[in-house]
Amino acid sequence: MIKNLKEKAVTWSRIKSPWVLHYNSGSCNGCDIETLDALTPRFDIERFGVLLKGSPRHADVLLVTGAVTKQQAKRLRRVYDQMAAPKFVVAIGACACSGGVMYGCYGVLGGVDKIIPVSAYIPGCPPRPEALIDGVVKLLSTLKK
C-alpha cells in the first residue's frame, strides 16, 4: 500500500516536470530550432514543467533530432546509457523516425530506433512546435497508465 503510494507520487512528479535533453545526431538543424522554439515565449513549453537540461544524468526524456550518422552512433548510445532509468526517447522529425530524406546515404545508419529504443515518434519536416508539445504530452499521458 505504502509502496504503491510512493510509486504514484514518483510518477505524478515525473509527469509534472519531465526534464529533457536535446541531442542532435545528424540533423539539418531544422528540427533543432523548432525544438528550441518550443521553449521560447510564444510556445513556452516550460509551463508544462518541461525543462531543458544540459546533462544526460539529469534528464528523463531524450529528444533526438536527425538521422543517426555513423560518427554519432556511438556517442548517442553513450548519452543514452548515461541517463538514469526510467528513461524515454522521443524521435523528432522524419529523419529521426526513419532516416527520411537521408535514407540510404552512406554516412547514415537510419532512424534513431536502429541504435536505442524509442518511446514516441513525432513526424514532420520539421514538426511544428505544437506537434512537439503534443508528442511530449502524449508520451506523459501513457506514463499515467
Binding site: 545528424g26 540533423s27 538521422a67 554519432q72 540510404g104
Partner: peptide, 13 residues
C-alpha cells in the same frame, strides 16, 4: 565531420 551524411553522393543518385 560529425554530421557527415553523404549528401553529395546521394545527389548523384
Amino acid at each position: 565531420g560529425y554530421n557527415h551524411r553523404g549528401v553529395e553522393k546521394a545527389a548523384e543518385a
